[in-house]
């Protein structure tokens, strides 16, 4: 049976991991490649690299990083952060990324999703959505959550999937960083509204939160950053407990 996926997310700035504390097994926790290889060895199912670099050198540092990851990591990985053109995507895929995620640029120009799906296949086009609930309704936010829009999250994800997005990475800004659990309601609503996999993101703090994301949120995968970087829940232990709850994981 197809397993639910556990996905550590690595924030990368100027080619270095932003968050994280020391692990016994690696000497440089700031090196995304070393951290990625460690997570892969521990049983992570996929990895997401989110580039938060703001400089002109961005594309070059990221393609170099992608190439190093692709050489050393034996599981699939997605790269996101500021991707806005077919050329950006071609460079990342050519260097070994399995998927890319688009966010703000896709919202401003939805045609980009179709272009990417036709050129590279829907399977590698992930739509990342930052969402926030206001007055009982979930809205799309852009630019890393700094800019509000009037678009309802459910409307946008449905449109994006129609255009060719192959997967949804849904981050709840209300939950992100709280460690109080994923936003189950909107995750479930998105998962039931589209026929592509949905990755729940934002709010993971305990093993039960992952179980809830899969059972109640109907997520196909769950993403987290700090609980892994700060060694709060080791991946093997997380998977053991999820399995004990009757959920299929690798």
């Amino acid at each position: 049976m197809l397993a639910k996926r556990i996905i550590p997310c690595l924030d990368v700035k100027d080619g270095k991991t932003v968050k994280g504390i020391n692990f016994e097994n690696i000497t440089d926790v700031g090196d995304p490649v070393a951290l990625a290889a460690l997570y892969a060895a521990q049983g992570a199912d996929e990895l997401v690299f989110l580039d938060i670099t703001a400089t002109h050198e961005k594309r070059k540092t990221m393609t170099e990083l992608v190439r190093r990851v692709a050489h050393q990591v034996n599981i699939p990985f997605t790269v996101g952060g500021g991707i806005g053109s077919e050329e950006d995507v071609a460079a990342l895929l050519d260097n070994g990324a399995d998927k890319i995620s688009v966010n703000t640029a896709a919202f401003r120009d939805p045609g980009l999703i179709g272009k990417l799906a036709r050129s590279f296949g829907s399977q590698c086009v992930v739509l990342a959505v930052d969402t926030k609930m206001e007055n009982g309704e979930w809205y799309v936010y852009l630019n890393g959550g700094r800019q509000a829009t009037n678009a309802r999250t459910l409307d946008w994800v449905k449109q994006a999937v129609d255009l060719g997005a192959g997967e949804i990475l849904l981050t709840s800004m209300n939950n992100d960083g709280t460690k109080n659990g994923f936003a189950l309601g909107i995750t479930r609503a998105v998962s039931e509204a589209v026929h592509v996999p949905v990755i729940a993101s934002g709010g993971a703090g305990t093993v039960q939160h992952f179980i809830d994301a899969f059972k109640e949120g109907k997520a196909d995968a769950a993403l987290a950053a700090s609980i892994f970087h700060y060694k709060e829940i080791p991946i093997p232990e997380l998977k053991k407990q999820i399995r004990a709850a009757g959920i299929v994981v690798r």
Binding site: L2, A3, R5, G166, D220
Partner: peptide
């Protein structure tokens, strides 16, 4: 189920040299 299938699934009924040393239901 979501189509296309994307992710880790098990393989069983393993035969031949390609799967030597692998356990049934490997992901």
């Amino acid at each position: 189920r979501k189509i296309p299938q994307m992710g880790w699934n098990t393989i069983a009924g393993l035969k031949g040299p390609l799967f030597e040393g692998l356990d049934e239901n490997e992901y």
